[in-house]
Write a protein that binds this DNA or RNA. Structure first.
Lengths: 363, 363
DNA sequence: TGTTAGCACTCATGTGTTGAGAGTGCTAAC
DNA sequence: GTTAGCACTCTCAACACATGAGTGCTAACA
């Protein structure tokens, strides 16, 4: 069951099969394999090995007279042991850095650029999850007058996030009450995290506080809670869903394409899946995923903003994908986002970035 | 060329063909037509009429031995003269009202609900354009301290819109400068519309103003401009793109499906198209659209917010769509949004809504 | 003169057949 | 343990063919 079951030659053959299948998408036969990869053994021998590999669960057979196709288990082995994750050349890296630096101080557009880069460079569907905000601490809460019946609620967090929402009041406010409200709420919630505030019994803590605010509070509190909810809600940006049409596994199979796109359109579900993945680079292959993604693979990685707020990005596509290249791209982009949005003394963004641990000093 | 060319019977036949084709998607033949719509004439007669209609450009022939298919011109006639736009029953109306009232005071979710309703009820791809903000007048501009090198720029408009953006400064600010900056900018731009401010020479007006602010201004002004740009940018919400898979014109034709989805994925282009349409309910059919949508139809309508800010919503789908039903739905939804967000003395939202001009008092 | 029945003709579609090609598994020889 | 040879399997594309829906035309009819 573990790779040690496989002798050197079997590994070599398996790797060759995976490599061929990943590039062509066609089941690979013993004959064509012996041609493309000269490994000094005849097709017949390869057939024997293939037969063994199939028995061990690494290969499957679409039908008797077809070539072999790697199983999910084979991809797992490939990803864990065989693949090369340093497949980014300097041109690719340059492209990523340039694009991300274009919008260095605007998180939103950086996120969008990242999604774009990711789908362009992998030719898959990419997604980027906005940073999580559960642990953002509130700094102050403000109400701004708009017109006789409308005010804007503004919530500012310590990390600089601001959320706002217009509120229609059922009765007119006084300037005085508005300010009092701001003060009371700021006092109550300052320094607390969003999730902590959500856990509090907000309405109660209010009616106890000040009788005179009760009518205003009745209007304001529901909106306040909804706004906090919204701040928590992870926003998912997607890109390149029409890339699948260039993949043979989809372009011949309407059913499959439809299923894929319907799955993508259920954003809540997808967000859920992505949010609940492990930290760091995570690759799940085929049936390692839930039922509705059981012939897809998902690769995700995290990025940091201000050293803390954590978002996630990744791609989704058929199990036959260029794991090495894709993983390299994802890693490089996520590292780069993190680096761009790292807290730093001065405002200069380092344009150098290494993903292999070694440091090079300018060039 | 105009409908008067058509005698009563031709019109009747044309309408029957369109009706049949819209529901089945199959070319309709003389024989099956005479069966489904008993109009007291034989298939042969119908054939003669069909032949005339084809000559006049209302029908086409996929191939010799196929039935007739309505041309874009026929749909145009249908939409202008024949269709019935009061196809919403009370249950549908109820559904729309309920859904939209769920989020009556939150523009964003109302917009999303509207898009959802629209795609669900029409089984097409829907879109909603956020309200245009060109004419929003600025109320005040504020800077909020976040940390030593970061401030949040906040722009509040008279209509209650708030936009904000974190800015990293190249050198630390003083509380004093920040407040001065707020004052100067508010003084300069208060009461002006966003588009008017964009037209001003912002940098110049600044350096003239205060020498001491110049370094701060250098950091802040570009972000200010970008934020204004963002406020102007119409945001497009889409829904139901996978609905096309249930339509026979797409589900048999990968090429077409791909083209459609690629077209949708170019949001900027699509936004452009939608923004530049006429006011009110607008229907464009087939080749009335630009090249890349030449076998699609587009139906849009406007909605108002606070009696002024105007957004747009609609659907896109094959020329074979239920124009009557779809138009009714779009109209009803847009009227309902407008009504929900109308400025009004009290906060109660009227739950009654008529789209046919007559009034019914709770029945 | 408009309407209709009859008939020959046209295509798209579905089905069955066939052959080529790629690949396997087995056996026997090296 | 490795390889050549061979029979066998299965997919796929091409082709022929029948079917059926539909048309256009002509001639007869009311």
């Amino acid at each position: 069951m573990n790779p040690n079951d496989l002798n050197e030659r079997k590994l070599q053959i398996l790797q060759a099969i995976i490599a061929d299948f990943i590039t062509t998408g066609e089941p690979v036969g013993s004959r064509s394999l012996s041609k493309s990869h000269d490994m000094g053994i005849s097709p017949a021998t390869i057939r024997n090995e293939m037969s063994d590999l199939e028995e061990m669960g690494y290969l499957t057979h679409p039908h008797t007279s077809a070539g072999r196709v790697p199983s999910d288990k084979a991809y797992r082995l490939y990803v864990d042991e065989l693949m090369d994750t340093s497949q980014l050349d300097e041109a690719d890296k340059q492209k990523i850095r340039t694009k991300l630096l274009e919008s260095r101080n605007e998180l939103d557009s950086t996120i969008e650029h990242a999604a774009q880069l990711l789908s362009d460079m992998t030719n898959l569907t990419s997604f980027v999850l906005m940073p999580r905000k559960d642990e953002s601490k509130l700094k102050y809460i403000n109400f701004l007058p708009v017109d006789a019946n409308t005010v804007v609620l503004m919530i500012v967090a310590e990390d600089g996030q601001v959320m706002n929402r217009a509120i229609r009041l059922s009765s007119p406010y006084t300037e005085e009450n508005l300010q009092l409200m701001s003060k009371v709420m700021t006092h109550n919630y300052m320094g607390k995290s969003i999730s902590a505030v959500m856990a509090m019994d907000i309405i109660d803590s209010f009616t106890n506080d000040m009788e005179s605010l009760s009518t205003l509070a009745a209007d304001v509190v529901p909106s306040f809670i909804k706004t906090l909810e919204k701040m928590l809600n992870a926003d998912l940006v997607m890109n390149g869903y029409s890339n699948i049409f260039s993949l043979p596994e989809f372009s011949g199979d309407m059913q499959k394409t439809q299923q894929f796109l319907r799955m993508l359109e259920d954003k809540n579900r997808l967000t859920d899946v992505i949010v609940n993945r492990d930290k760091g680079v995570m690759i799940t292959i085929g049936d390692e995923n839930s039922e509705d993604m059981k012939d897809l693979s998902l690769i995700t990685a995290d990025y940091r903003v201000n050293g803390e707020l954590v978002g996630r990005l990744g791609v989704i596509g058929p199990t036959r994908m260029k794991y090495g290249k894709v993983t390299s791209v994802i890693k490089y982009i996520s590292d780069n986002i993190s680096q761009t949005f790292e807290l730093r003394e001065n405002n200069d963004v380092k344009e150098e970035n290494n993903d292999d641990g070694s440091r090079e000093d300018d060039g």
